[in-house]
Amino acid sequence: MKKIPARILLPIIMGLCFILENTVSFYFAHTLFYGATKYIPHFIIVMLIMMVAYIPRNQVLVYALILGLIYDVYNIGIIGVYFAVFPVVVYISGKLLHYLQGSFLMVLLVSIFGVAVSEFGAYLIFSSLKSVSIAFLPYVTSRLTTTLLFNMAYFLIVYFPFTMLLKRWQRENKGISATQVKL
């Protein structure tokens, strides 16, 4: 049986990741969003940051723009929030991973940083639009820290299987990569 090329699998997996993020948000909404602490899944950002470690940044920026637009249309209703945030996070993460010559630990730390930038960027945009009413300190204590921990757990679960696919993508594309991540 012939293997499906990684260039075909990658968009499928990113689509499934989008569905998983929304499914987790929907089915666990009471647990995740209501209560003293809130856990916001940012699975797409985590996957995009892992991608930028293995795939040239410009190609990942295309994924970030498309997924940001779809995310805005499907989840937010205001086009432009994540359409802007996703590419900015990918760009910054790509630059960081390029200079840090990322290992597993560096990709983890950059992923945490990327989720924080994404969450904080969205918070700033929504607070400037007056569509969020939580003050900054309660936001950090009840939402940002728990969101970072939740997404770090997701990273630890998907890192090794997803990087195997990304390494296969590299082999299929003759190893062209913006950064070389070592395990």
Rank of each mutant, 00 (worst) to 15 (best):
F18H: 00
F18W: 05
F18D: 00
I19K: 12
I19H: 03
I19F: 08
L20N: 03
L20H: 08
E21G: 12
E21S: 05
S25A: 12
F26T: 14
F26V: 10
F26A: 14
F28S: 07
H30V: 13
T31D: 13
F33S: 10
F33W: 09
F33R: 11
G35R: 00
G35C: 07
Y39H: 13
Y39T: 11
I40D: 11
P41L: 04
P41E: 01
H42S: 15
I44E: 01
I45C: 04
V46Q: 01
M47V: 10
Y54F: 12
Y54Q: 07
P56K: 07
V62T: 08
I66E: 05
I66K: 08
G68D: 03
G68L: 05
L69D: 05
I70Y: 07
Y71A: 07
D72R: 04
V73R: 09
I76T: 12
G77A: 10
I79G: 11
I79V: 15
G80W: 07
Y82C: 08
Y82S: 11
F83Q: 08
V90L: 03
Y91M: 13
Y91E: 06
G94S: 05
L96D: 03
L97N: 00
H98D: 10
Y99T: 14
S103V: 12
M106L: 10
V107N: 02
L109D: 07
V110A: 04
S111V: 00
I112F: 09
F113H: 09
A116L: 07
